[in-house]
Design a protein around this nucleic acid. Sequence first.
DNA 1: ACATTTGCTTAACAGTGTTAGATTATTTAA
DNA 2: TTAAATAATCTAACACTGTTAAGCAAATGT
Lengths: 199, 199
Amino acid sequence: MGSKERIQRQKEDTRKSILDAALQIVKQEGWAALSMRKIADVIEYTAPIIYEYFSNKEGILFELTKQGYVHLGIKVKAARDSKENAEEQLEAMWLAYWDFAFEEKEYYQLMYGVQVNCCELYTKMPEAEYTTDLFYDAIEKLITKLPISEDISCLKYYTFWSLIHGLISINLVQKGANDEINQQILRSAIKAIIKTIND
Amino acid sequence: MGSKERIQRQKEDTRKSILDAALQIVKQEGWAALSMRKIADVIEYTAPIIYEYFSNKEGILFELTKQGYVHLGIKVKAARDSKENAEEQLEAMWLAYWDFAFEEKEYYQLMYGVQVNCCELYTKMPEAEYTTDLFYDAIEKLITKLPISEDISCLKYYTFWSLIHGLISINLVQKGANDEINQQILRSAIKAIIKTIND
DNA sequence: ACATTTGCTTAACAGTGTTAGATTATTTAA
DNA sequence: TTAAATAATCTAACACTGTTAAGCAAATGT
């Protein structure tokens, strides 16, 4: 009897619907408004059911964080593949990162703890490392002096990341900034950091 | 009878003790653990009393935010006054900002919404503008091309701020970064941005 | 047909911010 | 000094939050 598999499929559907419901609520009302009972309302169950799919609320956040990293990775990879030149690739990748932060604001807030009390234990999430690796590769392609030291690519990566994440955070928290100035800062700073890669 | 003034003084003391208690709890247990009842326990009252001094919890956070900006302003000003050279001044000021973020981690988290759901209405807080003005002044001192355009100082200010705030946020959220690398990024990036001021 | 397992719900606990009403203490007025 | 008025404080409650235990009902296995 194949009913086992049907039930299995139903369970996976419910699990997915929990994640979808959570994201929907957050997109409509923000992270502070997300509650187990609200999720239960959306999926038309009662709250305790959720605990058969996730050990607790943090479990849901953890899964959504993973989803976020997957989406970000896809977007950054696509940006890289849209360009030939190594410099253009790196710039396009950071711009894609920037776009992701605002298009998928709720994911970004969760992934990087901007106004969200995300759990602390997201260390060593393989989905997160994928994007990081893409950036490291792109940076190292631009380094001409061999052998490529881990230190210098790390330094450059964090410089890029700090600048862009800082600009995003400032905009996500005290929004109301001029978008033109943001674009100017972004583009000129990216170019400036790229220039210093082989200093 | 001067008892009016005595009572007035007592009220001010209680108000201050509420703020002190809140900060104490946060320093011991983090922002997530701060509750009205815990504050009440510390000041040896019951929770409703707090509402005679602050309209709600957000009111307490608002006041602490203001305190934070005052402290930051003092620190940044002191850093400026410790140097003669304009470049050295600006660098010292950002390093002071950096130090503040870690020495007064709880204040910084609140002021800039790092892992804290601070209220949104902190716009136009005069205490915050003081520090901003200090940085603008220091940047404009370095601009040689006259007349000094508002755009260019704004651009440079946000570039500095984004980078440093980003680096701080990353360290406050996913802590565990190498402190040497942070210092290297900080100092080299500050110098790099200063260099581009007159481009 | 009976027993067992599964799916799901209700009820509860301990905590949160916040408010209304009752109570106690202090001050003022007679 | 005593009575009335005011101020200070607390208890209790409401509507939430995450989470767990107990119970009911329907589907399943024997």
